[in-house]
């Protein structure tokens, strides 16, 4: 083993880590936006909306990320949308994670006592305001620890976007492995960075949990 390889690669791996975090965060943002829409559909009065939301969630959770990635990578040009690979990557990450995020949000929403929405309505608040001001803010806080867990999972899964040429942590370590002929060291280096990001996120999660649980969890 030549640990020199890891040390030489350090700046590249660091840069790639930032890319990994960036893609993951973008994926979560896209996923969260989709999740809120899907969740609203699941609570809608229309059976059609509910069914569609259910099917969407099961689709997102059933299709492996690599397949989802290829699907989008090939689908977009087919329907005339030409975007860089990075956009496809973020979309695939977002789609995959949105199913899980929607379920988390639903769990948190159903945990809010019915009386709160009733109280809002008793004051004459509109349905949308009840959602925006009463239900969502609480639900988002209570599911935050889970969302950070999902962030960590997505961060690991994002290694797959390397196959469409995105230069994130896994791709960069592959390049280093090819350039130096030291695959073991290159991948161990990448692993160390993944573990480090993981640790930071987990710490952040604990902090966030402590911060946001004030007033909600007695």
């Amino acid at each position: 083993m030549q640990f020199g390889v890891i040390i030489d690669a350090f700046p590249y791996l660091l840069q790639a880590s930032i890319a990994t975090i960036g893609y993951t965060a973008s994926g979560i943002v896209v996923g969260a936006a989709l999740a809120i829409v899907v969740c609203a559909a699941r609570f809608a009065n229309s059976i059609l909306f509910q069914r569609a939301a259910l099917a969407y969630v099961s689709f997102c959770r059933g299709v492996p990320l690599l397949v989802m990635l290829m699907l989008i990578f090939y689908l977009l040009p087919l329907i005339g949308i030409l975007v860089p690979a990075s956009v496809s990557a973020v979309l695939a990450l977002g789609l995959c994670t949105s199913g899980y995020l929607a379920e988390m949000l639903r769990g948190s929403l159903t945990a809010i006592p019915r009386g709160q929405a009733e109280a809002a309505q008793a004051f004459g608040m509109t349905g949308i305001d009840t959602w925006r001001r009463v239900l969502l803010p609480q639900a988002i806080r209570t599911c935050l620890p889970q969302v950070i867990g999902e962030f960590i999972a997505l961060m690991k899964a994002s290694s797959l976007i390397s196959v469409i040429g995105i230069s994130e942590l896994t791709r960069v370590s592959m390049n280093i492995a090819a350039d130096t002929y030291r695959p073991l060291e290159a991948y161990i280096g990448a692993g160390i960075f993944y573990l480090a990001i993981n640790l930071c996120l987990a710490g952040l999660g604990t902090l966030a949990e402590r911060h946001f649980s004030r007033g909600i969890i007695a």
Binding site: K156, S159, A177, P183, L184, E185, I188, Y194, N198
Partner: peptide
């Protein structure tokens, strides 16, 4: 370590890194 790193990386480590 296993739970903190991507499966793909573990796969590369064993398959490409293993021979060395």
């Amino acid at each position: 370590i296993i739970r903190g790193t991507p499966f793909l990386l573990q796969l590369f480590l064993l398959y490409s890194g293993g021979p060395s």
